[in-house]
Design a protein around this nucleic acid. Structure first.
Lengths: 326, 326
DNA sequence: TTGTATTATCAAAACGTTTTTAGGCTCTTT
DNA sequence: AAAGAGCCTAAAAACGTTTTGATAATACAA
């Protein structure tokens, strides 16, 4: 039923090869034949079958984007950055949520490989599973992972620095008793390390029981804050792994009768849309989310263009956005 | 380089067809040969090439999801619903943002068709562009569109009813001067109609200048509310097309010195995560977002299973969630 | 032994492209 | 007149599968 290249060739009275050359405009072709062929293509509504083309060229013009969870407000902007850039270069994007579950990540990457994607952008949670796939020469862009491997490129945001900025900010405001609610993503480690480094730099003690972790979701933020503030009433500031947890923290403070920021300051991470909308507006470490997606896709395109080249990691800056929660 | 079916066949000493049958476990095969083949598959790490398979079976195990904008907090949950259901049936999802731009929608659908997706789930903004693609027998699920066409199925939420509920709620609270900030999506019409029907039911007059529209984003909410309240100071309640606009409206009220809900009540639509996080918590019409995605994908799967069957529209209920902004 | 059904296998065609091979025709240039 | 460029043709191989049609092996009944 669909119009094939053979149909076009027959109708235009040229060889299949000529049609192919017109479609991919390569090689020397007279204007007159080109126009004749194009007219027939237009008239028949011919569209090349990308599946068939992909089979022979080994290029599918698809990529995979592996994230933890699109309903975490950090990811939509990143995804949008990837997709806008992809679309501008005629690529399509498979979006996959693997929920920070190593099993799911393996399955996701496997499926993407089965679909013969040209490349993959991933927020990895375990290095090992990615390594498995990096072996196959398939271009890979990892966000915030320091894995070194040929055909693997990195986009890094300075989360360590971001966490340190947050502590600096709190310390200069006079806070000495600071707690942290962490998440459980891989990226977390840098934020924790930065937090600890910040404490140390200001001569503050690191109290293990002041670190609580869990799924980086709103409800967990409420819960953890409740626990943190009842076990450590001396805490006057809380730094959270992301804005959702911070939103929960604010909510918990309200319930506990602690005013924010006067009785307890709160700093989030990511600076999602949420931050400016909640009350009080949230101080947060801004990541250039859209840009992360953009440059990750851009890098992937470069890697596809120059398969044997080695690319240095891309570093993106973070920024502390001070609002009224501190 | 990749392991092919031919390799497996040679290694196991059987025909390619036998391998194929083992892989798709169909047809009669002795246990002994099956096991021998499976062992070789395991040993060589063979994985069937879905592109090649798709070329012959015309089934790619991919679908397209066309939405307006993933950074609109309404969509991530829907997308997650689609993806979880898709993944459970070994489907992969192309996510496309077409920003409510008819040109982009055409391009998106065209690209998806080029990629030979098995089906498409779409939030259409113009009926005509979808009709173009519905002709091709490709299963289509439309959200909140009343287009009737073979091979096109609908998932509907009762937005008319939702808007009416909102007005009812405001009217029983004693509000008589109510404004609306609309969006510009197709789904909007039902919300506007429901709003007007609500006004009429309570004997309130419909004032055209009290309708303002624009991109359904936060900034636009601020802007429109400002305009609405300065041009119509008598307004004591505002109903918005979605939660983002409502969040903007609240912000604008604060700036104008109007307390919410005492001086101006606000009702949103969608009941996104936002609603419970902002201050005051937002009264909003809840759509079953995750479920929309789930059932849309489920329906698509049914359509793929039974290509010639006709399916009735699926209707999902909405619900007014009353919080403190009214 | 023959015939027949059942089961297991194989070789080849097909899917719709791109690419390779092996040219042919018409100009222009030497 | 020969050589080379430029533009094209036709046919076939390749990509990695599934599927078709044919055949071989086995089992059982007569």
């Amino acid at each position: 039923m669909p119009v094939t290249m053979r149909d076009v060739a027959k109708e235009a009275g040229v060889s299949i090869k000529t049609v192919s050359r017109v479609v991919n405009n390569q090689g020397e072709i007279t204007d007159s034949t080109r126009e004749r062929v194009l007219a027939v293509i237009e008239r028949l509504g011919y569209r090349p079958n990308l599946i068939a083309r992909g089979l022979v060229t080994q290029r599918t013009y698809t990529i995979g984007l592996n994230i933890q969870d699109i309903t975490n407000p950090f990811f939509p902007e990143v995804a949008r950055g990837v997709q806008d850039m992809a679309r501008a270069h005629n690529y399509n994007v498979f979006l996959c949520n693997s929920d920070d579950d190593p099993q799911e990540e393996i399955r996701t990457l496997q499926t993407l490989a089965d679909q013969s994607v040209d490349g993959i952008i991933s927020f990895p949670n375990r290095q090992s599973t990615v390594r498995l796939f990096a072996e196959e020469n398939r271009p890979f862009v990892l966000i915030n992972s320091d894995m070194k491997h040929p055909h693997v490129s990195q986009v890094m945001t300075n989360n360590f620095q971001g966490a340190k900025l947050a502590v600096d900010h709190l310390a200069t405001k006079g806070h000495t008793e600071i707690g942290m609610i962490t998440g459980q993503y891989l990226q977390e480690s840098q934020r924790v390390l930065g937090f600890e480094a910040g404490l140390k730099a200001h001569g503050l003690t690191i109290t293990p029981s002041r670190f609580l972790s869990g799924m980086p979701k709103f409800e967990r933020g409420i819960e953890a804050t409740h626990q943190l503030l009842t076990e450590h009433p001396e805490i006057s500031a809380i730094f959270t792994f992301n804005d959702l947890l911070a939103a929960g923290a604010i909510q918990a403070c309200k319930k506990l009768g602690r005013r924010v920021p006067d009785d307890c300051a709160i700093i989030g991470f990511d600076d999602t849309q949420l931050a400016s909308l909640i009350d009080p507006p949230l101080t947060s470490v801004r990541l250039p989310k859209y840009e992360i997606g953009q440059v990750a896709m851009q890098r992937l395109l470069e890697m596809l263009e120059h398969p044997d080249q080695d690319f240095p990691p891309i570093h993106l800056d973070v920024e502390l956005i001070v609002r009224e929660s501190t």
